[in-house]
Design a protein around this nucleic acid. Structure first.
Lengths: 115, 115
DNA sequence: TGAATATATAATAAAATACTTATATAATTA
DNA sequence: TAATTATATAAGTATTTTATTATATATTCA
């Protein structure tokens, strides 16, 4: 059964606005099960590096995602500590998996495996 | 238990973008349990009539809400026939009730009771 | 049928968002 | 330590969204 924690209207609208973008929403779904670095996302979404960086910044600013530096790379993942994590997860669970996109990368030898 | 019907990424983003506005999100929550006419929404949100009409149009365009004409008034409500109704409902259920706003109207004698 | 009321639409202006190009920062490695 | 690589940020521009003002449509009622 789902947990239904209530969330203020304003905060909800703010989060939904950020999720209301195809690239960001798909990124969030991808990050639900995976840690990804920026260059992988650039490859997957065929977008410019600054464009991806700026999407990530917005998600980071409201703490929906967190980063972990490892050498050259910065790995992004969902921030499970966030008070609104459950709200976001509820939405992500209605979306089709995007993991296939990472498998594609792997096949092309472009996956940045950590460590 | 929640029904979790999967929904295409693009459609989800489109819906979330519309919900990602404070006024529209709050309106949707209000309409979850109530039928409201435009003038009530204008009063509640202290917005101009065209502004409210245009918000409603967007929600109507993707069939999240439906209208019912009765005399001068046009009453809006959630469109439960929509394929994405369950998805939307899932989100609305995490939000605090807005019914209090209608009670306020009622007290002021501004509620348009149907029939 | 004409006036009044509720709502919609069109045109425009203002504000917010997203993308591009250029540059900065931080870590790695030769 | 200089060159390279991954990422971030800033500035400018283009695009999208929202609100405003003016006007049109539809219904009711005198």
């Amino acid at each position: 059964m789902d947990v239904k924690v209530q969330i203020e209207m304003e905060k909800a609208a703010q989060i939904l606005k950020l999720l209301g973008d195809k690239t960001r929403l798909s990124m969030m779904k991808l990050l639900q099960n995976n840690e990804c670095c920026v260059c992988e996302l650039v490859e997957i979404y065929k977008a410019s590096q600054p464009a991806i960086s700026q999407h990530l910044r917005k998600l980071r600013d409201i703490e929906l995602v967190k980063e972990r530096r490892q050498g050259h790379w910065i790995f992004y993942s969902l921030n499970k500590e966030n008070s609104y994590y459950q709200f976001v997860l509820n939405i992500l669970e209605s979306l089709p998996s995007e993991d296939g996109r990472l498998n594609e990368l792997e096949k092309q030898g472009l996956r940045i495996s950590c460590c």
